[in-house]
């Protein structure tokens, strides 16, 4: 591996200042499950690695019934799915957090890191999108907020600019009648990258018989995770069921722009978008009715 220096940042300002000073020649280390591999395989070069796990804000995980869920960008997956409140309120997120890598990856990998790695196939991103997550981005002095669906710009590329890093993620509190799910398809049952990932969330009315809002997001079928707003919008006012799900699935399939690579063929991916969208919606509705 290349040589680099390692610094543990004390606070958000410290980390952002170091980033700014090194202007593109420094990398943020949270869980390290992507960064260390990329450095080892020379897909990334760096002079400095900034460990942010010691920063209280970015290692914080908290839920407030009004504010919602705040996930520090270095919080590893295992803390998320071992938190009973989050399990109850953010099922789509739990789906994703508990299937990123194996147990030992989840001991380190963070959702923030998964997002910043900006893989088109990242499991957490469609789940975050359907939960309406917002990114809290830090600069030395200021902050800005970006919805997750706007965060990735290309494979491995994000909206983060010079000196910026992701401090935390904010998810609104789920109202009654809300349900979400994330499903991915992999050829094995573990240790695989999504061939296709689909996140779906639904808001049902008080009778739980009609959809008032829905969000659908796709992974691994475009250069970035894809928020397919029109697929969700097509469900507004609809009665949950096979017919409505199929309609949304068809829109999602049309929006997908899959390619063939070592992990799957374009044909199979497009086919799977339909299958998984229907299945994810069915689970989301079932959860919304609980």
């Amino acid at each position: 591996m290349q040589q680099f220096r390692y610094i543990r940042a004390h606070n958000v300002e410290h980390a952002a200042t170091l980033l700014l000073q090194h202007d593109g020649r420094a990398r943020i280390l949270a869980g390290g499950t992507d960064l260390i591999v990329a450095l080892r395989e020379r897909r990334l070069e760096t002079e400095l690695v900034i460990d942010i796990k010691g920063i209280p804000e970015v290692s914080e995980l908290s839920f407030d019934p009004v504010e919602g869920l705040r996930i520090g960008s270095s919080v590893p997956c295992h803390r998320i799915y071992n938190d009973a409140t989050i399990v109850a309120k953010y099922p789509g997120l739990i789906d994703a957090a508990s299937l990123i890598g194996g147990i030992q990856i989840q001991g380190r990998a963070s959702l923030g890191g998964n997002l910043c790695n900006a893989s088109p196939a990242a499991d957490s991103i469609p789940a975050l999108i359907v939960h309406g997550a917002i990114c809290d981005i830090a600069l030395p002095q200021t902050r800005r907020r970006v919805p997750v669906e706007a965060f990735c710009t290309a494979p491995g590329k994000t909206v983060l600019e010079r000196g910026e890093f992701l401090a935390s993620l904010h998810l609104p509190p789920p109202p009654p009648g809300f349900g979400a799910a994330y499903l991915r398809f992999i050829p094995r049952n573990e240790m695989d990258i999504a061939v296709v990932g689909v996140g779906a969330s639904v808001q049902l009315d008080e009778s739980r018989q009609r959809i008032t809002a829905a969000r659908i997001a796709l992974g691994a079928v475009a250069p970035t995770p894809l928020f397919v707003q029109e697929a969700g919008d097509a469900l507004i006012g609809a009665e949950p069921g096979d017919e409505a799900f199929a309609r949304a699935a068809a829109i999602a399939q049309a929006a997908a722009r899959p390619i063939s690579d070592m992990r799957g063929t374009a044909e199979h991916r497009r086919h799977l978008v339909g299958v998984l969208t229907r299945r994810a919606l069915a689970i989301a509705v079932e959860r919304a009715r609980k």
């Binding site: 050829p187 094995r188 573990e190 240790m191």
Partner: peptide
């Protein structure tokens, strides 16, 4: 292109 144990898919205990 798949010279890793991620993409050369050997069975896991779950398979």
């Amino acid at each position: 292109v798949n010279a890793s144990l991620l993409d050369y898919r050997m069975p896991t205990a779950l398979d």
